[in-house]
């Protein structure tokens, strides 16, 4: 497991669960090593794009404003957000 800031991880899990539920899918338990688009999670690229918009709405942060930053796993995405103290 990689280190991840817990609050943003929980937020990702919550919103990803909601996006999956909207499609009638059930999200398997998430870990920091869960990969977004390798077929293990019931989400497609539109769902992932939705997650990033919702995360921006809820955190006020857009880590991609200055260009794309590579991430493949949930933990890597979580690390792009700074958690308010």
């Amino acid at each position: 497991m990689t280190n991840h800031p817990a609050p943003i991880f929980a937020l990702i899990a919550e919103e990803l669960g909601r996006i999956a539920a909207d499609k009638g899918e059930v999200l398997p338990p998430l870990t920091a090593d869960s990969r977004f688009l390798d077929g293990g999670l019931p989400i497609d690229s539109l769902d992932l794009a939705t997650l990033l918009v919702v995360l921006e709405q809820r955190t006020g942060q857009d880590p991609f404003r200055e260009g794309f930053r590579q991430f493949t796993t949930v933990g890597e995405l979580a690390a792009l957000y700074t958690v308010p103290a």
Partner: peptide, 12 residues
């Protein structure tokens, strides 16, 4: 349409 780093744009 909001910009998206994954799909170019996304409708909200």
């Amino acid at each position: 349409a909001v910009p998206s780093p994954i799909t170019g744009h996304l409708l909200t």
